[in-house]
Every structure is written in C-alpha cells, then in structure tokens.
Design a protein around this nucleic acid. Structure first.
Length: 259
DNA sequence: ATGGCTGCTTTGAGCAGA
C-alpha cells in the first residue's frame, strides 16, 4: 500500500513543526507540499531527514515553492522536472519526479486573483501548457498522478455556497473547463471515487471565521491516471491540522493506492 | 462596497493569497 498526500502549508518556515508532527502521525510514503515560500538554500533538509524523509524541492523566496517528501533515507527522485514546458515562468509552481513505481507531479496552480485580471489570463495560459505537457507525461508514465493546490473547485458540490461564488475566480467556467480538459486526458479525481456528497473542503479563508462556519472550498486535488485510479483504495481530507492555533488555510488531502 | 486574516517584506505599509 502506498499513501500519497498533498498539503499547501502556506510557509514551510512557519509550518515545519506541524509538518513533522503530521508525518509522524500519518507516515505517508509521499507528501507533496505547496507554498513553501523558501529559497532552496534554506530548505530544511536535515530536519526532514531526521524525521525519515528524503526531499526534493523547487523553491523561491516569499512566494510559491513546491517540494516532494518521500519516506526513507536516500530515496531516489528520478527524471525531475521543475519547469512547465512551453511557458516562460519564473514562479516555482511545478515539481515532478518518479518515486518508486509512481510518477508524481506536484502542482501549485496560479490563483488567478479575479476573472478580469492579468493573473487570471496567466492562470488559463498556465493550465493550457500543463494540459499539453500532461498529455505527453501520460504516454511516458502510465502510473502518473497530478496532485496539489489546483485553485479550482471542480463542481458546485465542492463549494460551501455556490451562489455566492458563482462566476468568480476558483469556480468560473473557463477554469472548470480547463480542469475538465486535464481529466479528459484520462485522469480522475480520486476523492470522488468514495465520497459523492457536498461538505468536504480542503481550504477555508482565514477571515470571517470561515473554518468555524465551515465556509470552505475543495481545491486541493489528487488526480490519478487510469492505471493508478483503478488501484485507489481510499481518499480523505484531514481537517485536524486546520484546527491548530497557527494553521495553514489549507489542510492535507490523502489517497491510498494498492501499488 | 469594503474588508475581514495571515505571511512576507532590504521593518513598513502594502502585496498576495483564495
């Protein structure tokens, strides 16, 4: 059994103690992190090694930054990719590696800010480049999965109040179309293999007591290619870290595979 | 309509996040 998880930590500097605690409690084989906000020179390699994890990372100061943690010391990360092919992007949002039998593509999809902004256009361009790249990746690696902060709630059931969010960034039709095009390459959102109901979210705004009121969105996803999706044993969202005093606004999402 | 929090920044009010 292989347990794979994703967590947007919103600053690994602040959240490292929580990450170490979560690793010890859940022992994932792979954990993909987003928004580490750390330059590579100060990535906490030693602290994670002491916790029994090998790491590879693609960071920058202040913004963005992604990392992959694999259980075991001296683990091999093969065919590492740090840039989205076909797009010029200084923002560190992508990290792909082959870890054992699985090709893992860790993504921090641009937020988009608002549908009338340049950042929204960048988000859609970025998603188009991602689709073209993933089309090739699925041919090279049948056991591929994409996971991370997609900054898109796939459907209205992934939104606490669809009327309030309608047409806005994170739920707008062009973004959802872009996500559907990714899925059409043969991927599936494994959380939905097991849980059809609304009310399951992975992000809650820091403001307005959104977590307490459960005003959330499900925007952190694990999308598995057919060969892996058929071997998915379960998927869940762990709300526990979101309760902590100094929580990330996102919480971990986990999937288990029979591989 | 706005700002509400949080983290970050060549320490400050401003940006970005979602």
């Amino acid at each position: 059994m292989t347990r794979i998880a994703t967590w947007n930590v919103n600053s690994l500097r602040v959240r490292l103690p929580q990450v170490l605690e979560w690793l010890a409690a859940h022992q994932p084989d792979v954990l993909a992190l987003q928004e580490t906000k750390l330059p590579d020179e100060i990535f906490p390699v030693a602290e994670l090694a002491a916790a029994g994890y090998s790491v590879v990372f693609n960071g920058q100061r202040t913004y963005n930054g992604v990392a992959l943690l694999a259980r075991g010391t001296g683990r091999d990360f093969a065919d590492v990719v740090r840039d989205l092919p076909g797009i010029e992007d200084p923002q560190r949002r992508v990290l792909a590696a082959s870890i054992g039998p699985v090709r893992v593509v860790n993504l921090y999809v641009p937020n988009g800010q608002s549908v009338d902004s340049d950042k929204y256009r960048y988000k859609l361009d970025w998603l188009r480049a991602l689709r073209d790249w993933m089309r090739a990746e699925t041919e090279r690696h049948p056991h591929v999965l994409m996971l991370g902060d997609f900054n898109i709630a796939p459907e209205d059931r992934d939104v606490h109040d669809p009327d309030r969010w309608a047409g806005g960034v994170l739920v707008s039709a062009p973004e959802r179309d872009a996500l559907r095009e990714l899925l059409a390459l043969g991927f599936s959102d494994v959380f939905r293999h097991f849980e059809p109901a609304t009310g399951h979210y992975s992000w809650w705004d820091y403001r307005q007591g959104a977590f307490r009121r459960d005003h959330g969105l499900r925007i952190d996803l694990i999308l598995a290619a057919e060969a892996l999706a058929g071997r998915c044993l379960g998927s869940s969202i762990d709300r526990e870290p979101r309760r902590s005093d100094r929580a990330s606004d996102h919480t971990p999402v986990v999937a288990e595979f029979d591989i």
